[in-house]
Design a binder for these strands. Structure first.
Length: 448
DNA sequence: TTTTGAGTTGTTCGA
DNA sequence: GTCGAACAACTCAAA
């Protein structure tokens, strides 16, 4: 019998439960369905990454990958009829939109006599698994992490896969077509492993320290590969020992799982505050606020570390994690804009855009999410820059107007007065003033 | 049920 | 220059 491997966020052959499950039923047809929101919500750089990942998957399956056009609820039943398949095998999607889609697809397939098999998850421990003793989910990372560590995960052995040859059944885009986008990072399974091997050998030992320095190549940069399942977290966990660096990397993986778990239990927190009391926070949303947001999105705030981060994202589809926090804090606490604006911007521009990690990361910064963050935690873009990019190398790399500024002034070029680079903007707000404003607004929420 | 301790990532001020 | 304390109050987890 023919079995469809419906590929979504499991673009790999190794340790793939959906593929193993499909192969156990017969000849496998690897299928990718273009859905509107996949292309519409993604910027050009992420599309390029996805196309490269799919191209390499196609070549890894001997050119058998089939593309169809969504919506999936129509495409799947039709395709199963076309190839005579009676089962569709997937890696489960735990995000709100994906879950709803899969339920609809399951009903449609069932009506056509086709079984939808949820055979794997994108996480080492499936969302919904880690619980307190009373069965309720956790909302604080550290206790979650302690329990998460006690759960077991199991790898899938390499399957003996026979890919079905039905000729060319593809419909829809198979590449970037008209535009000339180049993937910002190598997107194949082999490339992901090359990266992990070389990075872990070189940088894992100093990970705890170096992961905070955006000028260094200190982080794994595997976020996009994890997001699309080119690499699976349990494959990484398997390769981590008990060293300090490995411990820290493991907890970063666990953060990803924690936020997926939080969103699984509280799907409305995708775009709504996890803490309802924060709904009364006063925010700026008028036309002037929109103008400030536009300037922020261009990377022209006048704060070098902020602009460097935004331009790194615009230019490469990725932003260093430390800088994501600085940039997010600036939007929320210096510009007083809704965190949702920033989250949407990141979702569009990041190759690794993951709804759970992204939006709950933003909620963390905004103080609206898990961890009742101390209200006084306001990042100072100058001191953060001086602390984590002490040489200014990162800023100079992404903000060429500042390339010639000396290290002493690189994070506050306005202090050069008339000698400040004329083509770099003055700070759009005064951080000290906006810090006080943010503290006052937070105070108003808690009712002092 | 009640109580207790703790909570990713910071900044500033004053000694 | 370095260092520790202060910066709210609240919710969550666990005993």
């Amino acid at each position: 019998m023919t079995a469809v491997w419906w590929i979504r966020r499991d673009m790999r052959l190794a340790d793939n439960g959906a593929l193993v499950s499909a192969a156990a039923r017969g000849a496998v047809v690897p299928l990718f369905v273009w859905e509107d929101n996949l292309l519409a919500a993604a910027g050009e750089i992420r599309r390029a990454f996805v196309f490269e990942a799919l191209r390499s998957l196609d070549s890894a399956t001997g050119g058998r990958l089939v593309y169809r056009v969504g919506p999936a609820v129509d495409a799947l039943p039709e395709f199963c009829r076309l190839v005579g398949a009676d089962s569709v095998h997937i890696t489960e999607d735990f995000a709100p939109w994906g879950r709803a889609r899969d339920r609809r697809v399951e009903r449609a397939l069932s009506g056509a006599g086709v079984e939808l098999v949820r055979a794997d998850t994108p996480y080492a421990i499936a969302p919904g698994t880690v619980r307190k003793d009373d069965g309720t989910p956790l909302r604080v990372f550290t206790p979650f992490y302690k329990r998460w560590l006690t759960h077991e995960w199991r790898s899938h052995p390499d399957a003996d896969v026979g890919f079905a040859d039905h000729g060319d059944l593809s419909v829809g885009p198979r590449g970037p077509g008209g535009w000339s986008a180049v993937s910002p990072q190598p997107a194949s399974e082999a490339a992901a492993w090359d990266r992990f091997e070389s990075w872990s050998e070189r940088a894992l030992g100093a990970y705890k320290q170096d992961r905070n320095s955006p000028a260094l190549d200190g982080t794994s940069m595997l976020s996009a590969h994890l997001k699309f399942g080119i690499i699976h977290p349990r494959q990484l966990l398997q390769r981590l020992d008990a060293s300090a660096g490995a411990d820290h990397f493991r907890s970063e993986i666990a953060w990803r799982e924690f936020y997926a778990d939080v969103l699984f239990h509280l799907p409305h927190t995708t775009w709504q505050n996890l803490q309802p009391k924060m709904d009364s926070m006063r925010l700026d949303t008028d036309a002037a606020a929109e103008a400030r947001f536009d300037r922020f999105c261009r990377g022209e705030t006048g704060y070098p570390i902020v602009d460097a981060g935004i331009r790194q994202m615009l230019g490469s589809g990725w932003m260093h994690n430390r800088v994501r926090m600085i940039v997010a804090s600036f939007l929320v606490k210096d510009l007083h804009l809704p965190w949702q604006w920033g989250a949407r911007f990141f979702m569009e521009r990041l190759v690794d855009a993951d709804i759970a990690s992204n939006n709950h990361g933003w909620q963390w910064t905004a103080g609206t999410g898990t961890d009742a963050a101390p209200y006084f935690r306001v990042f100072n873009p100058v001191s953060q820059g001086q602390k984590f990019d002490p040489t200014g190398e990162y800023v100079r790399r992404w903000v060429p107007e500042l390339a010639e500024v000396d290290t002493k002034h690189i994070h506050e070029p306005w202090t050069l007065g008339v000698f400040a680079p004329a083509d770099y903007p003055a700070p759009m707000v005064d951080h000290a003033v906006e810090r006080d404003e943010a503290l006052a607004r937070y105070k108003a929420v808690t009712g002092k």
